[in-house]
């Protein structure tokens, strides 16, 4: 279970790791929008080149990024099949009995797969270089304007922070219980339906019990240290914008503008 790559922070020392989380989130949003602009293969080529350069700069290994894409492979295959059967425009490329393949179908599929891959590259770049805690600080700050509308931004950020904080703990816990039950002869892979249900129950019940217990203990510990819901809080870690942060935001927005320009030129 330790092999969950999607959304995992990789502690390294690089330009991207040192950036302000707010800058990274803003840049990510700009690039995600850019990914969804139909700028043609030239546009995607440019985006991919920029993202690959960024991944190199962040000192991340490509195998890591590719591993993050693995969960999406099934979806990509599924989309390919659907597209090939549904889209019937453009030039006929191939016929085999009732199966006909048109070039538009392939083009559309290629677009979708490229978009998904670019999206995963972008989000992985953000999550792999940003500590979960910094991320929540960034989200909290970015949500600040909504506070005037009555959105409890601090509480939301605290909840996200706590949830993120407990993911590794709960994974460890699940692994421990899994092993303990495996020692008692539970087979989580084979067996009849009844045995499978009993196997899953032997994991879920203890997880529930310990989650509630943890939540209780955590609430007590927070209150013991003076946490009051909705109270005004100061922050130890102050986020500061540096030159790199401006460069990243401006760069991402220039990229977005370029995509819009390419898409616009493509239509006329």
């Amino acid at each position: 279970m330790k092999n969950v790559t999607l959304g995992q922070y990789i502690p390294l020392d690089s330009f991207f790791h040192k950036l302000d989380p707010r800058a990274k989130i803003c840049a990510m949003i700009a690039i995600l929008i850019a990914v969804f602009i139909p700028a043609g293969f030239v546009g995607y080529g440019i985006l991919a080149a920029v993202l690959i350069a960024c991944i190199l700069r962040a000192k991340l290994q490509f195998s890591f990024v590719i591993k993050a894409m693995k969960p999406m492979v099934m979806m990509m295959i599924f989309l390919t099949i659907i597209n090939v059967f549904v889209i019937k425009t453009g030039n006929l490329l191939y016929t085999l009995g009732p199966v006909t393949i048109y070039d538009d179908a392939l083009k559309q599929t290629a677009y979708i797969i490229i978009r998904l891959a670019l999206m995963i590259m972008t989000t992985t770049l953000l999550t792999a270089t940003t500590k979960p805690m910094d991320m929540t600080l960034g989200i909290e700050d970015l949500l600040k304007p909504f506070e005037k509308l009555g959105v409890p931004t601090h509480d939301i950020a605290m909840m996200i922070a706590l949830a993120l904080r407990f993911i590794p703990t709960l994974i460890d816990e699940a692994e421990r219980i899994l092993k303990a039950q495996a020692s008692r002869g539970v087979d989580f892979e084979n067996g009849s339906l009844k045995e499978k249900i009993s196997a899953i129950m032997s994991l879920i019940v203890p997880m529930f019990v310990s989650c509630f217990q943890r939540a209780d203990d955590l609430a007590d510990a927070m209150e013991a240290r003076g946490y009051v819901v909705g109270a005004k809080r100061v922050r130890y870690k102050q986020l500061k914008f540096g030159r790199g942060d401006y460069i990243v935001i401006i760069g991402a927005n220039l990229l977005l503008a370029l995509m819009i320009f390419l898409a616009y030129r493509g239509t006329i």
Binding site: E173, S183, P206
Partner: peptide, 30 residues
């Protein structure tokens, strides 16, 4: 695993059946 019984640290967290007796029966029945 039948021949080597492993008791984990804080083993109490592995209990899940409705009754004590049922929980102890779980291992042998597996």
């Amino acid at each position: 695993r039948h021949r080597v019984g492993l008791v984990f640290q804080f083993a109490e967290y592995q209990l899940f059946e409705e009754t004590v007796l049922k929980d102890v029966c779980f291992g042998p029945q597996n």
